[in-house]
Design a protein around this nucleic acid. Structure first.
Lengths: 205, 205, 205, 205
DNA sequence: AGCTAAGCGAGACGGTACGTCAAGTCTTTCA
DNA sequence: TGAAAGACTTGACGTACCGTCTCGCTTAGCT
């Protein structure tokens, strides 16, 4: 399947398949971007480096993406596709705790810092943000939204909460701390933050 | 008073005063940076532009700050010093609501987008983050912490909450949304987010 | 009739006729090249532009010509076919003067600067030079050679001159000045140069 | 002494001396350009190549010259400064013949083809032409003008000739032939052309 | 009448070079 | 002695044009 600009993706459109060549370049570029991101983060994923390492010319890269940040965003989506599956047991509450634990580990690992760099890049460029959402965030949020919904259905959370806001209540504080570094996100802090957020969402007992 | 690197600041150290000239250059540079930030955001606040507009040579800038982001961070602190005072009436709860209202307006205004750009810049460079905290964030958080403490004392909030986490429970979701743009921060969303956060902190009634 | 590469042309060979389509593309490309040359000179006559404007694909262009300069050279020949006819009255001397006057006007006009650009392009590529000669210069020189021959026959010029050299004695200085711009080619200069050249060729009286 | 743009040079102005560093870069770049020109002609003297080989950054090159052709033009001037001195014996006529002989050899040698490439480059860009004249041609023409003047004084040439035109009468045909390649410039042709030109300038006997 | 080979438009691609921007360093000169 | 002035290197950027390639369509001309 060919690549898609966020606009098209967000509009639910697909580009007409363009032939083997185009996709090959797209894939090669993404693979190189993934590799460079893992090794050196956003700083390493320059257009020149991706071009050189992948054998895809710069002009072609610019035909496929509007900026290096966009490539990185999509590459990050590819990279994360293999991680962080959502637990799905009988207990929504247990699943929530499991998932939030995973999140904590993720944020403190190498992928976490790439994630943070990407969020930072979103600040400078709305297009990057669009790519980041389309190729990574949206799907992940959908998964988490399902989990929250299950918490609502099992009467763990109130039924008048806004799912999107609930998600941000968990993630926002963590991301903010990772970006600015004003406070720790060690296990204790993490659990305490989560605890506060859960209290904000729980159904009164 | 001469300038301080964050390391020194955070360690409570002061550089030996360096003479009248130095401070004049420091001030001039900051004034220019403030001006450039207001006009064109982070993108406009380049070293060359600051140097040219302020008449302070690049070399001198680098003697005073480690990077252009650091200048911007300190300049932003200067810029914000005149805004967003904390309300202080008899009612902590009313003060909290007033303040959070102000925050909303601030985030959506021109200063808000500079703030977001700076937070984004923090992602790439720990030193920038240190400057940002030292010259802007720390003081502001202290003010907000006091407000939260008053909410605890007036038994609006529980007394076992962590003030730092409480702050991030309010700010994190907003900042996250501003950065990534995945959801609105209009008045309704804002109040709903705040409402969720407050619920997480409130003393059970 | 199909097109010919200079080598073939110069060897007196013709390509086997290739079918109606081929010629249509050839003509369309030349027409576009003429148009682009007139509007923007050599700089505008890029392969991409010719291809786009004419609807002839780049691959086809490269099947018909070895380079964009070659296309331009042939197009210039087409363009000039409509201009600069040779006067032919009873007086060879008068005809010579008329023609040289025309030349002066031509060199200073828009076609003159295209001509100069093409001569400049010949410097970098022998193939371009071959096209330029085949599709423009050779025929023109033949015409001028006839005129000079008539001057010899009417005993205006010596009969031991080399016609080719005589032509270059007139044109070389003009072209050189147009290329390098070290001296004017206004009417006075032009006539003076021509006068020197004629003196070099005249039969002593 | 710092470098000069042709406009300044032609206006007789000098840039204010800029310090040792600048000149070092200028010299290094020219040396590299000379070297590259000798090895591969104009095609080899790319900005990137000059920058890489000389260790002078591209930005600096563009501060010193407006284009690679300008660098090449100045470099060619440097290269030629060591060649083609003007003979100066008692006999102006003999000196003229000697010099024209030298010219022939020069045109057919490796430097000749660089010369032709440069003349060709002048066709596309007036600035290149200005550099070419300033750093190579003007001085050379001054020398040749002196020689022609001596021919006038010795009553070999008429005294009503225009020196500039006389120069072009010799050089124009040669340059034209070298550029377009429509006719030979072997010894016979060369002498014949020179002979024609001389006839055009000689004092009637 | 159908088949085959050629020419064709479309358009993506790798490559070379360009010209520019901003960052951060270094030297010279001045106060 | 410290700072202004400003030239410098570095690294990356985004673009232009080139010449090549593959694809699938059309057409010509032979079988």
């Amino acid at each position: 399947m060919g690549h898609q600009t966020p606009a098209e993706v967000e509009a639910g459109l697909l580009r007409p398949p363009s032939g083997a060549r185009s996709d090959a370049a797209h894939e090669k570029a993404l693979r190189s971007a993934v590799c460079l991101l893992k090794i050196g983060g956003m700083k390493a994923a320059t257009i020149d480096a991706i071009s050189e390492q992948s054998g895809v010319s710069k002009v072609t890269l610019y035909r496929h993406w509007p900026s290096r940040q966009a490539i990185a965003a999509e590459a990050f989506g590819v990279l994360m596709a293999r991680h962080l599956t959502f637990p799905e047991t009988d207990s929504a509450q247990a699943d929530l705790n499991d998932y939030l634990d995973d999140i904590g580990k993720f944020y403190r690992g190498p992928l976490g810092s790439i994630f943070v760099e990407l969020v930072g890049a979103c600040a400078n460029d709305a297009t990057t943000a669009a790519y980041f959402r389309t190729f990574f965030l949206d799907e992940r949020r959908r998964g988490f939204a399902d989990l929250i919904q299950r918490c609502v259905e099992s009467e763990y959370f109130r039924d008048d909460i806004d799912t999107e806001q609930a998600i941000d209540l968990f993630f926002g504080p963590l991301v903010y701390r990772m970006l600015v570094g004003h406070a720790s996100i060690d296990d204790r802090a993490l659990h305490s933050i989560i605890d506060h957020a859960i209290r904000g969402l729980r159904k009164p007992v």
